[in-house]
Design a protein around this nucleic acid. Structure first.
Lengths: 221, 221
DNA sequence: GTCTATAAAGTGATAGAC
DNA sequence: GTCTATCACTTTATAGAC
């Protein structure tokens, strides 16, 4: 039922991409991201991981201390940049005289979409989707402690733009939108880019889809 | 980072519920559902599982053949009933002279909500959410082969009710709605029932929330 | 149908040579 | 900083007594 085989874990090209550049530490992080996305945190073993990264088994404990600390670093590497990007975009639009719901949603969605369209970044979005599904308290606490302020800032802005909604109603809708975005950005039902559409245009179209859906879901009467 | 400890895996009451009734086979299925929800398919071991179920370790292989076959049975037990229920509800409304989008969505959502509000059923919705996040081809093929016809029937009905949408546009929206529902039904952001609201009323309110959100997401211009 | 005992392989982590 | 070798433990699965 559940594949746990080793060989077909990564496409050949992907393995080369992962283990052929950067320091040992970077190669481990890259391989961890790919294998956690495919097999989960429990499913991916340090032996798979170090083989794909082309490093020695002991290197993980030397550079990170433990598997759990490695997991944490996989999250930090991407989320620090992603959420700084989000807050920077939010700051840009909040200062404007007439901020729209679209503007705020774009500040939240576009940075994530940009990440998910960069080859290795899309793997990370799958890791993130897994983390959501895990319901692991330790992991959730880590995310809340380190990145909770981002969500709070966006929620405050949504509340300002949707004053007709009660707090519970707003939280309800934000939660449903979050579910839709996580699902979409983890690369599940992402519409395939046609060959006559540029990467940039495709990202723009995808962003428009997501934002319009989110606007409808947040602001319906 | 990731909890793998054994003791606090289940609340005491839950363990009693799981292992105190039914045949050996049923007790194993119940414990598997609970532990797969909490620790994932890889994270939950047969030793945990048989201890919680109060049965012998060897009983899993005797009754199911292997861990993977057990996973399959955990899905079958709930999905057979859930999807039959959905199709029955769909058949009821499709025959009517003026079927609405709300009717069709209710036929899809209400059976899942009913399941997710029955104590052990809510654990299964979390198992299902995990399965989505897994991206495992074997698992996805199993779901598609056995229950794909249900989604196709609902999609056809959506297409009939939303003729202004192109096929890709419709698939996009259905996918985003699916993400929101999976997220919500896995018990993530479910609004807590207040003590002065009956279980039945709460389920009704939740259904209304989900359906209105889905209508807005599917039918916006 | 249930049990004990155990096989065979995998796991994370570490000690110590280089 | 990288390596080999290995420890201590857990995993799934099975053989064989009852």
């Amino acid at each position: 039922m559940l594949k746990r085989s080793f060989e077909p874990a990564c496409r050949p090209g992907m393995i080369l991409t992962v283990n052929s550049s950067g320091s040992t530490k970077e190669r481990i992080l890259g391989a961890a991201e790919a294998l956690f996305a495919q097999h989960g945190f429990d499913g991916a073993s340090l032996r798979q991981l170090t083989t794909v990264a082309g490093v020695n088994l002991a290197a993980v404990n030397y550079h990170f201390g433990s598997k759990d600390k490695l997991v944490e670093q996989v999250f930090r590497r991407r989320l620090d940049a992603l959420n700084q990007h989000r807050l920077a975009e939010l700051a840009k639009v909040v200062g404007q005289p007439q901020t729209t719901l679209e503007d705020v949603l774009a500040a939240y969605i576009r940075p994530a979409l940009e990440l998910s369209h960069d080859g290795n970044g899309s793997l990370f979005m799958r890791v993130l989707a897994r983390a959501f599904a895990e319901h692991d308290d330790t992991l959730r606490q880590f995310l809340s402690e380190n990145y909770g302020h981002v969500m709070r800032q966006f929620t405050a802005e949504f509340a300002r733009l949707l004053p007709q909604l009660s707090k519970p109603e707003l939280y309800w809708r934000i939660d449903l939108v979050t579910g839709a975005l996580t699902h979409a950005m983890s690369g599940f039902g992402m519409i395939q880019r046609k060959s006559d559409v540029s990467e940039h245009l495709h990202r723009e179209q995808t962003a428009q889809h997501l934002i319009r859906f989110a606007v409808a879901g947040l602001s319906h009467p």
